[in-house]
Write a protein that binds this DNA or RNA. Structure first.
Lengths: 156, 156
DNA sequence: CTTAATAGTGAACCAGGTTGTCTATCGTGT
DNA sequence: ACACGATAGACAACCTGGTTCACTATTAAG
């Protein structure tokens, strides 16, 4: 490689760590009956939450337009992970709620993430893993959503 | 948040760490005369390397089709970071090479990444940072390119 | 009660990925 | 020597998912 400073490895390793976790998660989710689940879905379902939300709010949470949020909801609805219901108080709004399949996906994801974390603890040791998480917490912002990964990384 | 296991934080922190580094890099690059540089560009320029490459090879390196690589090269060419030259040995091939602007972008990125890493070292301590990198190396694959981030995270 | 703000939707557009097709050129085997 | 398969690049069509603009329906406020 031409230009390979020490600082160049750090972002790569962080991303690869993220990616390997997400890939392992979805391989396991596919085995557990969610073959069509995509990386974005879990995050969106998490952002929707058990309380439900609306397209506008979801867009705000994820940092995308309400139209983009609406399209994502369409996809999740088609996959059976969410459903839309009219709000009696405000007939403009449509509440987006998790279906049992959506809750199942979130529940399994949670357990699988715990398992993957345990595997990391076996490799690098539980203490080092706790330190790694603590260190990352100190150098990253608190705001957890607003990933807006698709688009953000784009080359345009 | 509804479902918030310990294992759920780890991938988020990894991604946020990656993202905060990349965002800071591009904020600084914009200040240093590269306002149109996007996250993907640095990785692609790195993959092209000072030796140059072809669309087919670049596609192989990045894990995308040769057509997609060609489109990315079009963009970088339009921005003035690479240029295409005919290969005298094989007139089918077009060698993609970094322009001085492309080399400048890579050089500055390298220095800025080093600076950002130094800032992390100030926050969490140099020893902890080395441990963090060593630990990540043990849980991530060696293959550094093939990010194929756009698309991989998609919600389709 | 008029008017401004908000929720959702559709259309047009853009970026960037895919596959399929096509031409030009290279390289090899007979 | 030459035919033929493999390769490089480009073009088109299509898909996804993002954007903005425009529009309707409904709520909230002056």
């Amino acid at each position: 490689m031409s230009i390979d400073p020490p600082g160049f490895e750090l972002p790569l390793r962080l991303f690869l760590g993220f990616r390997v976790l997400i890939d392992d998660l979805h391989a396991e989710l596919a085995r557990q009956g969610h073959p069509h689940s995509r990386p974005m879905h879990g995050f969106v379902l998490q952002a929707i939450g058990v309380e439900g939300t609306t397209a506008v709010d979801l867009g705000r949470t994820l940092g995308v337009s309400k139209q983009a949020a609406g399209k994502t909801i369409d996809t999740l609805e088609r996959l059976g992970y969410v459903e839309r219901a009219r709000d009696a108080r405000d007939t403009r709004r449509k509440i987006v709620r998790l279906t049992p399949a959506g809750v199942d996906l979130l529940t399994r994801s949670a357990r699988i993430f715990d398992d993957l974390r345990a595997r990391w603890a076996e490799v690098i040791g539980p203490e080092r893993l706790r330190e790694l998480e603590a260190d990352l917490r100190r150098v990253t912002p608190a705001d957890v959503f607003r990933l807006d990964v698709p688009g953000w990384f784009g080359a345009s």
